[in-house]
């Protein structure tokens, strides 16, 4: 620390340190902070966003922190651990699904989803045109037709199959061979007509899965899910699945933030934001974000108060004040001023 040779300067330095400590300790600092936040809010009412920041600055901040910044490994770890903590919390055993998602809200969600008609049509189209669906339908049709022809209608009525009479007259090997041949031919037929079958089933599905049917399915699902405990609902997912989802989401974000789309979109959104708020006062913008001066003062008092109290108790605050002020009181400028004012060096 700088040595203060001048006695008067040393006395002033000690008085200044005492003054700062008194201002920053106890309730005084909270009053000061409340007052300063109030003044800052008043001032922010007189300046516009365009006066204190530019679009380029904000885009640069996004680039630094959203695109380039390496997210600490501790954050993903914490996200995974906290997700697991939520899943394994005893609160989840005591809370029902419909306590989190009230039935009235579910109703609104369901109605909105049911009303998404073009999305429903597109989803059905995509599913029915997929190879997986085509293979599935072919297999189900083949199995169904072969069963209908060769199996009894009911296990107890062994004589009811279409080929029942034939089955009694020919050896089982012949019947098996016939079944295999018909199944193979049927498979070829279905394969050849796969496109038409897919097209037809798309129409059937559009008819079958109309708004009312989807709503019924949603209501049925809700009826069984609503009374479930959250822990039971969560049981469908293991902690490993949860960790995997956190990693997948994070990996997606890492890739997505580097895309040209994200960069250009964020620039566009910053532009939109400035178009909307650029000429308005910063206080209006802060208010639109739902932040009031009372909130800010309250939160500062909640968090800054205890931190400052601890800094005073441990002597940290005093050591920092001394470190900041000592060079000034030890400076030749202060010595000169004091000499000129007739408060010379009492030590000499």
């Amino acid at each position: 620390m700088s040595e203060i040779a001048n006695d008067t300067a040393r006395a002033l330095f000690e008085a200044h340190v005492k003054h700062e400590l008194a201002a920053l300790g106890g309730d005084a600092v909270l009053r000061t902070l409340a007052e300063e936040v109030g003044k800052a809010f008043d001032w922010l009412g007189t300046v516009t966003l365009n006066q204190i920041a530019t679009r380029a600055q904000i885009v640069a901040v996004i680039d630094r922190y959203a695109i380039q910044f390496r997210i600490g490994g501790g954050i993903t770890e914490l996200a995974g651990e906290m997700s697991n903590a939520v899943f394994s919390s005893t609160r989840s055993e005591e809370t029902r699904v419909d306590e989190i998602l009230p039935p009235s809200l579910f109703e609104e969600f369901a109605e909105k989803i049911v009303a998404l008609d073009s999305a429903r049509r597109e989803a059905i189209h995509l599913v029915t045109q997929s190879n997986a669906y085509g293979a599935f339908v072919t297999r189900v049709l083949k199995r169904g037709i072969v069963d209908f022809v060769f199996r009894p209608l009911d296990k107890a009525q062994s004589g009811d199959s279409l080929f029942a009479n034939l089955a009694r007259r020919v050896p089982p090997t012949v019947l098996r061979d016939l079944e295999e041949r018909i199944a193979a031919r049927l498979e070829r037929y279905l394969e050849i007509h796969r496109e038409r079958i897919a097209h037809d089933s798309e129409e059937y599905m559009l008819e079958a899965l109309d708004e009312r049917a989807i709503r019924t399915v949603a209501d049925d699902v809700w009826e069984s899910v609503a009374p479930m405990r959250l822990s039971d609902a969560f049981a469908f997912i293991t902690s490993h699945d949860l960790e995997d989802f956190v990693v997948l989401g994070y990996e997606f974000w890492l890739k997505y933030r580097k895309t040209r789309y994200f960069r250009e979109l964020s620039t566009e959104l910053v532009g939109f934001f400035f178009d909307k708020y650029g000429d308005g006062s910063v206080a209006d913008l802060v208010s639109d974000m739902g932040v009031s001066r009372e909130m800010l003062v309250g939160e500062i008092q909640t968090f800054v108060g205890p931190v400052l109290a601890e800094a005073v108790t441990t002597g940290f605050l005093e050591s920092r004040i001394r470190a900041r002020l000592a060079p000034f009181y030890a400076s030749s400028g202060v010595s000169k001023l004091l000499s000129e004012a007739g408060a010379g060096d009492g030590s000499g």
Binding site: G73, G74, T76, E77, G80, E81, Y250
Partner: peptide, 10 residues
């Protein structure tokens, strides 16, 4: 846990 991987490597 896979979420801890990033503590060690990007």
């Amino acid at each position: 846990a896979p979420t801890s991987f990033y503590r060690h490597f990007e």
